[in-house]
Design a protein around this nucleic acid. Structure first.
Lengths: 194, 194, 194, 194
DNA sequence: CATGAATGAGTGTTCATTCAT
DNA sequence: GATGAATGAACACTCATTCAT
């Protein structure tokens, strides 16, 4: 039933979704939802917190592996696409609503998560620059935003039953992010047929 | 007055913005807005169509220049950041609401724009691959989505009075997109120790 | 279980009391109450009718004793405080809700009781005036209302485990009602030490 | 419009009164009420606070007169009946709802008023006992409750267009409260022709 | 006897919109 | 051009009640 609600929230936005609509979709009357949930907001809460918890379980596993910066980025991005695969609706909701939700005490964990997320990514990028695996001439904060948005916005078009699984999308995505879409012009490298 | 409305829509979302709020911010009463506009929806319409029109004026100028694929991408991205600079609120609204608006006759121009936009980008990318300036091993549609989202999502954090102007952001952004964030391992192509 | 319901009705009002609240207090679920009672209203009905029946059993016993008017008033007041002691919750409910209940067929016995009550008191007062034991210069209907309200309103503050039992409260109360709170100034009468 | 609301609240109770009912009675639609009031609760608030304020204005005038205890009681009772005459509905609401309202921060002034009221009456009674104008053998707190309830409960039956004005009712009432309803049996006092 | 789930009518409230002044 | 008052449809939510298990 939370799944139904998540789909409708993702498709139409939290505010624009009426409780009747969710109930319809779930095959019961509006009032009946309140046997299962305290409020419309509590549905949103459960959807988002379940997602955030799973997300960090995945991220923490990555961190525990103690990889180098580049491998950490790869693992985090791959994990992110796996989360999009599993919680597509929740991610889409988070993308759309987190702005309005920020600062509301009940959703304080969203702010906390955002802060940890930023520290994690900025830290990893800085480590990569220090280690010489990431370019030193980039604005770290800009690169962070670039990565962050780029990964999560995928939830708006990702279809779990599409041709590519999350790992494949992550691979392609990482290829673009790490090496760029342009053919490397460096010397004689990368002779490409075609 | 449209500017006021655009700011409020961008900040709180179209649905969550009440007509009273806009009126308050504009210094008059809710009813008085209806002397100037037919409806709340018509405000949204004017805001979005003004933005879409200016956007395509810029893009058409780029196209008229007849540049190569890489230079076209650079010019389109730069133009996009200029539009974000000038129509930040409208872009933010577009990002948030275009999903709900799609398919509504009144906002048909949004669908048209999206279609043209896709053709433009996909065409340019394909031309670049054919010309050997973009990597041939990438999924074109994935790359398109990647570029599209990545550019526009910037409207959600861009501040016109921030440290970087639109051109500077475009430059940094293009650097990441074209060449990647990883240090190029030049020489013979990308052998990576790991 | 009726006792539980009566307490909750008395404490929060009939309308403001939810069936769930009563069930909670009784240690079962809301739906389960309906095995024992037809409806929320029928609980109210049983509570009030049990009280009214006991009240009139007491009053009828007083009447059967064939006392003089002053002694009748004393006995009725004492009996009333005994009822408050035994049915505090029911009396409080009656005080609060009888207004809304008046005229509803199901609670017709409340109207009947009120009528008999009025006849009894007004009759006793009139008899007392005729006999010269009650002052002739008072408005009988005003005195009736005064006595009536004054007795029953005690249910709102009476605590069965308080310092005074019902008989003691009745005695004090009768002393005020019959002789007043002022020190009698009449001529040489009632010289009171202290 | 507050008057309309007050009448309906008084007649049916605050909880049982629907906002639609008030609107009907006022000749407009339910939603329209919200142009004039923030909420149903704020109507109750305005009604009660207006009454409480006027009540204390009256009481304070009495206190400022610096009367003796008996005259103070007479003046307070008379003033109270005048308030019932002017704010009958508000008094009835207060009587019925103050129990549920107690402790709610918004209605804290009710608690304050109740406290001042109690101090005022208990103080006056004690002064009267000390001065020898009130009987020394009565429980002061009981007498206080007796007076308090007895005065205010009159709001439940008082009709502004009835045969007696507030001053006349106060006079009769004071006669009962001060001297009792019984014929004084002391010696030769109060010979009554009849 | 009790539960868990559902119902449906009703509640207070919001809000885009209208319109006489 | 703007105001103040009103509208009416919709909304989230409540609650007495029902009923299969």
């Amino acid at each position: 039933m939370l799944g139904v609600a998540a789909e409708v929230f993702a498709a139409h936005g939290y505010n624009a979704t009426t409780v009747r609509r969710i109930a319809d979709e779930a095959g019961l009357l509006a009032g009946s939802l309140y046997y299962h949930f305290d409020s419309k907001e509590s549905m949103l809460d459960e959807i988002l917190s379940a997602f955030i918890n799973e997300l960090w379980a995945g991220y923490d596993a990555v961190l525990a592996a103690g990889l180098g910066p580049r491998e950490t980025v790869e693992a985090l991005v791959t994990e992110s696409f796996r989360e999009i695969d599993r919680h597509r609706a929740a991610v889409a909701i988070y993308q759309k609503e987190s702005g309005q939700l920020a600062g509301r005490p009940r959703f304080g964990y969203l702010d906390d998560s955002r802060r940890r997320f930023e520290q994690l990514w900025v830290g990893t990028l800085e480590r990569g620059v220090a280690d010489g695996v990431f370019r030193a001439d980039l604005d770290i904060r800009l690169a962070y935003r670039f990565l962050r948005d780029t990964v999560w916005v995928a939830a708006s078009w990702y279809r779990p039953d599409g041709p590519h699984g999350p790992e494949e999308i992550a691979r392609q995505f990482l290829s673009m992010v790490l090496d760029g879409i342009a053919v490397s012009t460096g010397g004689t490298s990368q002779p490409r047929p075609r």
